[in-house]
């Protein structure tokens, strides 16, 4: 009998304990990206671009070259990096406020240009780092510190379906939404993240992957309750699936 390790920390991850709150599924996403970097063997060939928000310290956990961006501007910074290093893998990570509110311009035009970068978008329907304010993806009726009575669509409009929006642009090669709320979806999410990197490596164009995630702290729920709340409230509004795949881009 011999024991084989079937699950270990990916090599592209540092040993640092992540700063995310207990039960925040952002840590899963952080790990999936590292697993993909390992599987594609691109650790020494990758430059990551980070956000402002809960994932602002993401560089502490990936053992790759890293470039900071200001709030919302990661796709523009990644554009600058990719234009200088067209042979490198350049990816960005942003939260919902970063990518779908203050940085809407940058992500839309990076997609429209068909910028050969992979953009990861963590949607937890709230501003986490600043303490639970309404996000562009806050669900109608969802309580936040700036929508204390629940998001009122008359006053504050509707959540932004950014990933569907980007799918209609000719420059977008790949657009998909995944979730990490249970093991089956975690496995699926990793495949999709990997595909987004492969689309870039093959030079097929711009890739966006939205990843639904929880925020137990600011939702005011336990980690396990948060998973349930995501299933019941976020999934119906933000359906998972691929909205555009590279085969469709040339049509």
């Amino acid at each position: 009998m011999s024991a084989a390790k079937v699950f270990t920390k990916p090599a592209s991850m540092t040993d640092k304990i992540m700063h995310f709150c207990p039960g925040c599924t952002h840590g899963i996403i952080q790990r999936l990206v590292a697993e993909v970097i390992d599987e594609l063997d691109i650790r020494e060939n990758t430059i990551a671009v980070g956000p402002v928000g809960c994932a602002v310290f993401c560089y502490d956990y990936w053992d790759v070259d890293f470039h900071q961006a200001s709030h919302g501007r990661a796709p523009a910074v990644a554009t600058g990096v990719k234009r200088v290093h067209p042979d490198k893998v350049v990816f960005s990570l942003q939260g919902d406020g970063d990518i779908a509110a203050i940085g809407t311009t940058e992500i839309v035009h990076a997609a429209a240009r068909g910028e050969k970068i992979s953009c990861l978008f963590v949607n937890n329907s709230i501003y986490g780092m600043t303490g639970g304010q309404m996000a562009p993806t806050t669900i109608v009726g969802q309580k936040t510190t700036t929508t204390p009575g629940g998001r009122d669509s008359n006053m504050a409009g509707y959540p932004v379906k950014l990933t569907e929006m980007l799918a209609v642009l000719d420059g977008t090669a790949y657009s998909a939404r995944v979730s990490v709320h249970n093991p089956a979806n975690v496995i699926k999410a990793k495949k999709v993240i990997k595909k987004a990197f492969e689309v870039q490596i093959k030079g097929e164009g711009f890739a966006i992957v939205e990843i639904l995630s929880t925020c137990p702290t600011n939702w005011g729920l336990s980690p396990v309750e948060s998973i349930k709340w995501l299933e019941e409230n976020i999934l119906p509004y933000f359906p998972i699936g691929e909205f555009k795949t590279p085969g469709e881009v040339s049509r």
Binding site: A4, K5, K9, F20, G23, G27, I28, I187
Partner: peptide
């Protein structure tokens, strides 16, 4: 797979 903190290693 579900651990957000990469705190679990598994052997088989």
């Amino acid at each position: 797979l579900m651990c957000p903190d990469v705190a679990i290693e598994v052997e088989k």
